[in-house]
Design a protein around this nucleic acid. Structure first.
Lengths: 333, 333
DNA sequence: CTGAAAGCGCTTACAG
DNA sequence: CTGAAAGCGCTTACAG
């Protein structure tokens, strides 16, 4: 069975195809009786607009590209979920692109252009200068709006982005430990230099300096296995009483090691994670953490992008920062 | 700056647009010198094919729809990652659809047809009869290949699907507990009747019966908070020495409750999860579980779909079952 | 091996 | 409020 086209509907409804198009897309431009007739016929025939013909004729795709690094990471998936639900509400579909290495990046961009996406959401934690140039080029040459999601690119303050104030969060969580009386507070961060991790570190360092303490930073991989050794070496060679992990999972890995060494949590050492994933509730003791409104970051980013695509200029150019909060559970006192 | 079209390339290369099209898509049909010239010009002008025009003219979209229920679930995200990477390799883009309630389902399908997707991957854990009818209709009426990913629809054995043998896995994990000497083995499953959970339960019941034991099934929600009460009530009212959770997170929740009640793991109670998520490594004791090759399930499903889209009929119609394995860690002896 | 031409299914000024 | 017609940027038989 072949799909009904706009002409089929026009023929049965005894109007021109132009009228069918109007009745479907700009109903107010059509006399009510005509409109009702057209709509009825369209329904009877099971008419579904061909998105390609529509896109070709109107040069609107109603598709947005979502570029992700590692979808398997809990926070990334949650953000995409937020994006997806808002997109559906606004009538946009989402084209998912696993982000590629620098070499394959051009190919990705070719795809974006081929599909004539109406907008781009960029979730990669890290954005290299090379990638920035390419993607910025897209924005300026083809006028495709772009919003960074939960990441920032500091060299261009005008780039739209949605995140939380990670520097401030890093400062606050360190301060919270200081106020518990902790003197030797370590930051566990990733070897790979994600912009958001760097901001957390900046806030940590600012607080450490402010309170006259000694900074202790451990760089570990995100990998659960190699973490073990890095963290274990670090913990044995440093006398610490407070720990901040840039991810919940890193904080928990460290907690497990500390417990093995006989340290009591939180009596001997207080621990904070970052993100408030489900891990925090499943581990024992339950993990204190910074609540990052991940879903909302995704949803908000999609809303901002929608506004941009509609040609509404933002009141607020540049970074949009959502609220975070400190959640105290059993790993702090 | 406007995009270069195939005509721009043709004009500069001094050939017809048909030749440009051929040089790009069927290079073997074009004389090498002509081809090289065209390719060179295309590159110079930064020509990118317009996917809409292409799709309209050829009625191929090179897009596949991926329908997901809850992307925030670790296993779902991991599968989509597998799908995405294979899709990229084969030159397909993925259109992500958060699956909707039965009422909004028609809308979703309208979108699928509008975008003329070349294939559909269905990741929803549950597929209702109503949804099955609609989606099957799509396959027969519009000839859009469909593959179920990590789910099954038992009423139609011919439907292509990729999963593991959950019934067998349920049987084996129960048997493993029996062989440890456990006599009172409980299954913790979800209230919502996912097909895969039902298969696990079936396998569990078969083993329980085979070994002449008494079945004990607890139905709980997937929600971490309400789990607490359900599991706690269950554990207090049943004398158990073995536990199987249909998800790692449920198994861990139960373990935490048992530990609170003073039961020793694994001395008093052995525990198995299902899936082998990262949770299993972060909790203490580390969780024994069934390893489900989630990423591979996604990747394989995309490969099967590709074959279908190419018109290659499968050697193997119906269900494709990947290998699973039992991983023993610290929660079993 | 290459070109002229029709067609894919829409949208949208332009008339009326 | 409605229709005729051109155009969006490709592909693909059909000739040659």
């Amino acid at each position: 069975m072949n799909k009904a086209t706009i002409y089929d509907v026009a023929a049965v409804a005894k109007v021109s195809n132009a009228t069918v198009s109007r009745a479907l897309n700009n109903p107010e431009k059509v006399k009510p009786e005509t409109r009702d007739k057209v709509l009825k016929v369209a329904k009877e025939l099971g008419y579904k607009a061909n998105a390609f013909a529509k896109g070709l004729a109107s040069s609107k795709s109603t598709q947005v590209a979502v570029i992700v690094s590692d979808l398997a990471r809990a926070s990334v998936a949650e953000m995409v979920k937020g994006i997806g639900e808002v997109a559906t509400n606004y009538g946009y579909s989402i084209l998912l692109f696993p982000s590629a290495s620098d070499e394959k990046y051009e190919e990705l961009l070719t795809n974006l252009i081929s599909y004539q996406v109406d907008g781009i959401l960029y979730l990669n934690d890290e954005i290299t200068d090379h990638q920035y140039k390419l993607i910025k080029d897209l924005e300026t040459r083809y006028q495709i709006p772009l919003v960074l999601v939960n990441t920032v690119y500091e060299s261009d303050a005008n780039l739209l982005s949605v995140a939380i104030d990670y520097e401030k969060a890093g400062y606050e969580v360190t301060k919270a430990l200081v106020q518990e009386g902790r003197k030797h507070i370590a930051l566990l961060t990733t070897q790979k230099r994600y912009p958001v991790s760097e901001l957390k570190e900046k806030g940590y360092l600012r607080a450490i300096e402010y309170y006259g303490l000694q900074p202790e930073v451990c760089y570990t991989s995100g990998n659960l296995d190699s973490n073990q050794k890095d963290l274990s070496d670090f913990v044995k060679s440093h006398e610490i009483d407070g720990v901040i992990g840039v991810r919940d999972s890193i904080a928990i890995s460290c907690m497990n090691i500390l417990k093995n060494l006989g340290r009591k949590i939180p009596e001997d050492v207080s621990i904070f994670g970052f993100q408030n994933t489900r891990y925090t509730l499943l581990c024992r003791p339950t993990l204190s953490t910074i609540n990052v409104p991940i879903y909302e970051i995704g949803a908000r980013a999609m809303k901002v992008l929608t506004a941009e695509m509609m040609g509404e200029t933002q009141e607020q150019k540049g970074q949009i920062l959502l609220e975070h909060s400190i959640i105290k559970r059993e790993t702090t006192r």
